[in-house]
Amino acid sequence: MAMLHTVNKSSFDRNTFESCLRLAKEGSSVLLIEDGVYAAMKNTTAAEQINSAMGTLTFYVLGPDMDARGIKADALIDGFKIVDYNGFVDLSIEHDSVQSWL
């Protein structure tokens, strides 16, 4: 069963994102929302971990939360897909269940 994992914390503040990566099974998706979106940016200390997980997990980031925080699409790590709230709804339907990492 494919699960959608959402992460809403900056990975520089809490270990939420790290725990999500440790426990998300191959084939599931990770959607970064709220302060979680900062982890989607290039050149951070979290980037390497994300790059190595790119093959097994699919990464999404919530566009409205990026925009609010001044993050442009070209600042994202390659492979991140941007979705809006409609896309968030679709993702939650396409997956069998949703786990919110708080």
Binding site: N8, I33, E34, D84, Y85, N86, F88, V89
Partner: peptide
């Protein structure tokens, strides 16, 4: 932001 995010999600759905 939790309540705002939930609202935007609910509205979109």
């Amino acid at each position: 932001q939790a309540a705002d995010s939930a609202y935007q999600f609910a509205k979109a759905a």
